[in-house]
């Protein structure tokens, strides 16, 4: 594991949603077409594109979370149990449970640690993401948006994955809180030897945190490269349009 170069390799991935209505009329939608890329160890790979372009479908396909879709192509993981940080910290945390319970659940399911060890790991992780130990007893409803997103990150990291997909992790947050969460993700990468696929529609956020970037339009990756190159010399008209829109 310590010798690996890539944490993820995707080759020729296509996803097609098909729906058959009651009387057999078939409707289908090509969500992804021939997507190929790799996530290198230790890097933050950005994925940008307008909403509806297939970004979330890609993240779900990578983690095997798609139902009722035809998936073709190759997805190879080189790390065990990759995790995801979701966009909406309100929906991604169970409102009926305490923070401690939420963080402990993956460890309980894993079943290898006793209660004391689980508790130790939970409290340790809370501190690591910048929360108080006492917040283990609070419910998500008692936390701010930024704190909730910290809990989401902690829950994703509790079983020590090496690869994280962050699907719009800061787009539901205020700008100042965004910066704090981005800092946290940045620091955790070094501390825990993480690699990220960082999905965002916000080109400024991607510029501030990512090493490389992919641009997606209508289910295809039309351009990818180092952030500086792509932002300075966009090759594709669509990329130029996106960059102009935020006056980069």
């Amino acid at each position: 594991m310590d010798q690996i170069e890539n944490v993820l390799e995707v080759k020729g991935l296509s996803v097609r949603y098909e729906d058959r209505s009651l009387f057999g009329k078939k409707t289908s939608f090509q969500a992804l077409t021939d997507v190929s890329f790799e996530v290198r160890r230790g890097e933050i790979l950005g994925l940008v594109g307008e909403s509806g372009c297939g970004k979330s479908t890609l993240s779900k396909a990578i983690l095997g979370m798609l139902d009722r879709a035809t998936v073709t192509g190759e997805i190879r993981h080189f790390t065990p149990r990759p995790q995801m940080v979701f966009q909406d910290p309100f929906g991604s945390l169970n409102p009926a449970k305490t923070v401690g319970w939420i963080l402990e659940e993956p460890l309980r399911v894993y079943g290898k640690y006793d209660a004391e060890e689980r508790r130790r790991r939970v409290l340790d992780m809370l501190e690591r993401v910048g929360l108080e130990r006492s917040q283990a007893d609070q419910r998500p409803g008692q936390l701010s948006g930024g704190q909730r997103q910290r809990v989401s990150i902690a829950a994703a990291l509790i079983r020590r994955p090496r690869f994280i997909i962050a699907d719009e992790p800061v787009s539901a947050l205020d700008v100042t809180i965004q910066a704090q969460i981005l800092d946290l993700l940045w620091d955790l990468r070094r501390e825990l030897d993480l690699s990220y696929l960082f999905i965002s529609h916000d080109l400024n956020v991607v510029y501030s945190i990512c090493d490389r970037v992919m641009v997606m339009e209508k289910g295809r990756i039309i351009e990818q490269g180092a952030v500086d190159e792509v932002y300075d010399q966009p090759q594709h008209a669509y990329t130029k349009k996106l960059l102009n829109a935020v006056q980069f």
């Binding site: 983690l63 979370m65 995790q83 995801m84 979701f86 966009q87 909406d88 929906g91 991604s92 945390l93 169970n94 409102p95 659940e105 993956p106 399911v109 989401s152 829950a155 079983r159």
Partner: peptide
Amino acid sequence: DYVANAKLM
């Protein structure tokens, strides 16, 4: 998402 998250875990 919390259900999707639980499945993923």
